[in-house]
Design a protein around this nucleic acid. Sequence first.
DNA 1: GGAACTCGCCAC
DNA 2: AAACGTGGCGAGTTCC
Length: 460
Amino acid sequence: MLLNIRSNEAYQLLHEGTLALSRVEEAGVRIDTDYVERTTSELTKRIDGLEKEFINTNFYRHWQHSSKGKVNINSDAQLRHFLYTIKKLEPVKFTESGLGSTDEESLRKLEIPELVQLIEIRKLKKTRDVYLTGFAREQVDGYVHPSFNLHLVKTYRSSSNNPNLQNVPVRDEEAMQICRSALFPHPGHQFLDVDFKSIEVCISACYHHDSNMVKYIRDKKSDMHGDMAKQIFIMDKIDKKNHGHAILRQAAKNGFVFPEFYGDYYGDCAGILCDWGKLPRGKWTTGMGIELDTSAFRLSDHLIAKGINSYAKFESHLKAIEDDFWNNRFAEYNEWKKRWWNVYQKYGYIDLLTGFRCSGVMDMKNCINYPIQGAAFHCLLWTLIETDKVMRAEKWKSKIVSQVHDDILLSVHPDEMDHVKEVVYDIATVQLPATWKWINVPLEVEMKAYKINGSWAEKE
DNA sequence: GGAACTCGCCAC
DNA sequence: AAACGTGGCGAGTTCC
């Protein structure tokens, strides 16, 4: 990756960031090696059992019978050949190089029970082989010391390896429990997680200054995702305390707002939202899709009542919303996107607000996303550097132990907890915006403490 | 026979 | 036409 540094300040950020992250690496994260060993062999037993079950199915026998040599159930190539050439099933999607996909989504959509078993085996193997054995391999005297790199990523974000602590499962409850139960703060400490709230949305506003977007960020009573949920699901109001409303708001956020910000379009959003809501691609009738308030009231009932009774109608509904989103609600953001793309096409590069330059082959989505992702991460990096300075000056027992894009993980001595929180809060929300004058919206952080001596799976 | 590579998948 | 960016693994292929 070409590091193109355009200011002394940018140089200084990387220089100090590298030193601060080397201290994070040195501090390390404690691992319970007995737990890792025990759990690895438990997982192996479970995987062996599941594989025996799988091998006893007619599906597997057919697969083996159709194959020249011994079937390797871990081989996507062999599975692909069996499903799409031997059984002549129609792939639901294709890989980059045009082959039938065998990823989880594809296997689920084929609705073959044995493939669900295979998905479970894949998941457990990944948990065991990538995470648990990775931790065991990398640990030295009961601590892992992941590298945090600042020179590898073309967006000027960071990356992590040996082991990678930036992709430890969290959304999948079972995988999260298994992996994060291995990782601990320093003895007598507790983890503290500091998270910038919607930092990429905030940083995007620093580039485009869209007045409606700035209003959404500044006005705590406004609710962008709630407003989009109202529009997408045709509702008068969204009450965050109502469960049915809350899930619709979440769907609007993950199925429309973020995809649109990243450069996706209404057609994909329709697919994402219908998959999420368990609605089919064709005509909709009563009683379809996920439950809203009660089991009697389903998503299709709600949408049909609003005049949307098919996938096609929902898609054109989203098309109109997208049009309103970019040409009305966030028209200034949209103008910025066009200007930014023109700048790249004319000069061959774009500059981040933090003094770094992105060049090379980029499409329009890259041009929009790189500077936002990079500068957002630089807010985190600046916060980490300044926290590290205070930590050393005041000789804290507490340490910074990890970092991922908009999130800092500390191992905190309980006596220092209140002070650490205060210092980090002040650096992130007061000192940072005061230092980088281009930050034109308030920044917020959320802090979550974990149990004393508790693993990374045990929130307080 | 092993190193180095690509692909596909999947975790964030 | 159609989601940004990573790291790491196993399978399979190619090269020496």
